[in-house]
Write a protein that binds this DNA or RNA. Structure first.
Lengths: 194, 194, 194, 194
DNA sequence: CATGAATGAGCCTTCATTCAT
DNA sequence: AATGAATGAAGGCTCATTCAT
């Protein structure tokens, strides 16, 4: 568990980078296949990543971390409605853009503890932002924290399955607006204009 | 090509019924597997259903037909908003309840022409109901017909992935309300505030 | 074994004609497949033709009969060398043109007694023509009757495997000339120049 | 990618040797079947030979190589007619003796690049020998290089289909002589008439 | 006679995972 | 640590032939 040897670290990097490329082109990760592409033995790949899920989560981690970092700064926004909407928009865009996120988000159980940690943080950030938005009357009172993840999953899924790849971000953004935005803005804006 | 022989019809029934059971328990349909369970030769299964998709669509057909039948009566409702909401609610409930629907709905290409036909009908019913609802001001004007399928897909997916199976219908109903309902009420209510 | 009933005869005709079409397009004969194309039950097809070979031989029969008929008139030619060469040329052209012949010719054992009979006749015609040609000095003395069938098989096979389908007859004719002709002409022509 | 591990090499040998035995007894190569005979998993067989063709070509390679080696020395013969005849005779004998050759020779496309290379070499050797023989007047002038492969294919096929296995070499040799020899002698003899 | 549903052996191929080297 | 050969279950599909209706 100490730092990897220099060559091992290099292998790790190459593995993750190849996996990332495969994810981007929509190819499912097969460790055998990856070993070949990286010019490593399968055994070595398995040493680094015991399962395809572990590798996938490793690929997803940077994005999840960026999302988390942004999320943790969202509460600083003094307009709770905007804070929530922005957070959700960034999340959905990430999910639609980075194909490694959806399966990791949807998975009930994680291969990496780091993943669990990040998912938990994101979840509590969302919870907090929603609470503030609700308190500020910027959101329907019956929207619960448990609705957030499904809501995002649904929007992402819909954008991925329907609509051309190129238009996905835009599509997802519209869907989110159609649902969340449409509901919050009429209620959220009038007070702030005072 | 004419009605099946009596025993063949029995086999057909058993195949569909076993497939239905597998679908219900979330098992993907594998024709070999099914042949074993039904105590039929693989060839027989292939004779009845050339691909797993054909079998799945056959399993889905009754539900699709019921949905279509209900849908075709929806326009009779004199409250366009309610007609649309009811149609969407019934569709989503069906998709969440019957696991054969989601993949059939999402598929770009169908194995059975009957499936294509039903999907087309449902789609045009939705389009019509949305048009009426919009004309009646019961729905946001920027909601297009192309949004309907993704909207339902998204809600269904979210309800399936998150939340206990038992609660799915309820979850989906709430999600639909949270989105669709939330949007209509603000516009519907103002008049009543006078 | 009496004459077929009228409808049975019609079926027989259609079977043979469909089989002929398949042979012509290079498709191997599968009785199941044929049954479907002719809109008959497999059982019926099997009743008419117990094996694919029987059907193939039936398809080949008319050509074999024509070849035989021509062959039996060949001895009437008063130039034995030309008689033999003509017979061989016609045979090879038929084999190259009609894809049903090669497998029937090559088969060690026949499904139909009629086939055996025709093959036997052709063989003895060849033997006789060769004998006369040899006696007339129109052919190398070491060419035996047993060489004839292999010679034709070889030429046919070569023409079929190599060279475009369109050019096959021409190719086969050349090959035959290259071999047989090369041998006979030097001996056959000089006298005629006198 | 480097020499195989010792055990893998042993497996490779056994695979090829079993395949050779099957070829010799006229059995078509089926990778599953071979796996069973060699007591290896199917996957292992597929690792060594991705297709039956690759295995067959591997089986054929030594013979092709021997043929090539002999062929490349043929031009050294100072009698061009004899050089060509010898080359053809050796080739045909090999094809008749080794059942792996005919399909490899007839195939339009090769699984192994080594095969392509060897076939190309043999072809150009034949072309050269024919050219010399023609220049020396040892062969009919209308015999083209493109005739060589069909000629050999034809002779081989005929010898294989007709005549007892034991007699095949002899049969093929005679057929070759009957055709090629018949052509060369007329031209070869005149000088002797002096 | 005709039918065509049923059969099921048999071939092909892939892939996650282990373990001897 | 690294390697990569080996495994073999698993799934897909075809087709010649039989036999109940």
């Amino acid at each position: 568990m100490g730092p990897l040897r220099k060559d091992a670290a290099r292998h790790w990097e190459r593995l993750v980078s190849v996996a990332r490329a495969l994810v981007d082109e929509g190819t499912p990760l097969r460790l055998n296949d990856i070993a070949r592409r990286v010019h490593l033995g399968v055994g070595t790949v398995y040493r680094h990543f015991p399962t395809a899920e572990a590798l996938l989560e490793t690929v997803a981690t940077p994005t999840l971390e960026a999302l988390t970092a942004q999320g943790e700064q969202a509460p600083a926004d003094d307009e709770p409605g905007r804070a929530l909407a922005g957070f959700l928009a960034r999340t959905i865009e990430a999910e639609v853009t980075d194909a490694s996120l959806a399966p990791v988000t949807a998975a009930a159980t994680d291969a990496l503890s780091r993943t669990t940690e990040l998912k938990r943080t994101l979840s509590s950030v969302g919870r907090e932002l929603l609470g503030r938005a609700r308190d500020a009357g910027a959101v329907r009172p019956d929207l619960t924290a448990d609705d957030l993840v499904p809501l995002m999953c649904g929007v992402t899924y819909a954008a991925n399955v329907h609509g051309a790849p190129a238009a996905r971000v835009e599509t997802a953004r519209r869907h989110l607006a159609t649902r969340l935005g449409a509901c919050t803005s009429p209620r959220a804006e009038p007070p702030s204009r005072v």
